[in-house]
């Protein structure tokens, strides 16, 4: 048992946690944007998947991982525009469009990957991927250094983005308008700002971040390989993180970190339990997370209610 615990809580687990959390976190930050703008975006999984493919494809064509990431982000903008075209401009059901986007992504990526790389996928191809970055000084700190240093660039970009996205949402007028476009679109319109434009903006940001997430998945997490269906429902886990964090990008990162932690523990426990069962852990945690959010909200509401009731039910003061 001690042996298991020491394995589970080793620095390796926390490194793995960061690796697993980053793609979910990037997508969850993007999902926070659309959530603030009042769009229920369940198409993130497809956005990630397409980002993963375009990342590999870009890296293959351009010959550098940075080019791949740039291609994935640019393509993510296109996907965001496409999503907004339907959801905002044409007012289609966002659930249907999200679902269709996911299925489109699975067909599109499989088709393109087979048409370009052949049946066996990217395995035989030389594709530049993101190498881990060793940070001098920090890497010598015991335990922490091992975790913080030696990650791929996008892990650090994600840290930067926590700050940027948080500041954007809560400290800039655009973020303010974007939140208003979801909560009180009519008020925003009265103030002379188009809520539709803010929704378009949120969708494009979400597309970008999901593209980045996909690029991390294929170029960072899997060293330059594309596997069909490799997003593995991460987009939905990201969505759960968004709900969990009430669309606060910084909290969404923490929620993703929690997911990453359980994913890492699952991977560690593979020596003891069937890997199929441990792979199910993060998904089960996500369900529990969703239930927890809703139940705790409910409890908060209920704990407030009786006081109102008590006040209302109190007999008028004598005299």
């Amino acid at each position: 048992m001690n042996e298991i615990l020491s394995q589970v809580f080793s620095a390796g687990t926390f490194t793995q946690m960061l690796r697993s959390a980053t793609p979910v976190a990037l997508a969850a930050m993007g999902g926070s944007m659309t959530e603030h703008a009042g769009i229920m975006n369940i198409g993130m999984d497809g956005m990630i998947l397409m980002g993963a493919l375009i990342g590999v494809l870009g890296s293959y064509v351009i010959g550098s991982a940075v080019g791949g990431v740039a291609a994935a982000v640019l393509f993510g903008i296109l996907v965001g525009l496409f999503f907004a075209l339907f959801v905002v401009k044409l007012r289609s059901d966002e659930f249907i469009i999200g679902c269709a986007l996911n299925i489109f992504a699975s067909g599109f990526t499989a088709y393109v990957s087979r048409a370009v790389f052949g049946l066996s996928g990217t395995s035989g191809y030389e594709i530049d991927y993101m190498r881990p970055i060793e940070i001098p000084l920090i890497k010598d700190i015991p335990f922490l250094g091992e975790i913080i240093s030696g990650n791929t660039a996008l892990v650090y970009v994600a840290w930067l983005l926590i700050l940027v996205m948080w500041a954007f949402v809560y400290r800039t007028p655009y973020g303010f308008w974007m939140r208003a476009s979801g909560e009180k679109p009519e008020t925003l319109r009265t103030a002379g700002i188009s809520p539709e434009k803010m929704k378009w903006l949120s969708s494009v940001l979400c597309g970008m971040l999901c593209g980045l997430s996909g690029a991390y998945l294929s170029l960072g997490y899997l060293n330059g390989t594309f596997v069909e269906g490799m997003s593995a429902s991460r987009g939905f886990i990201a969505f759960a993180c968004v709900i969990f964090a009430a669309a606060n990008p910084a909290k969404a990162y923490l929620a993703a970190l929690m997911f990453g932690f359980f994913d890492a523990i699952g991977l560690r426990l593979q020596n003891y339990i069937s890997s199929d069962l441990t792979s199910a852990i993060p998904y089960a945690i996500t369900v529990i997370m969703m239930v927890y959010v809703v139940v705790s909200k409910e409890r908060k509401r209920r704990s407030l209610q009786p006081r109102h009731d008590a006040a209302a039910a109190q007999p008028p003061a004598e005299g």
Binding site: A100, L101, I103, F104, S106, G107, F108, A110, Y111, R114
Partner: peptide
């Protein structure tokens, strides 16, 4: 997979 694209 072209059929998935057509379907969507």
């Amino acid at each position: 997979q072209i059929y998935l694209i057509i379907q969507t």
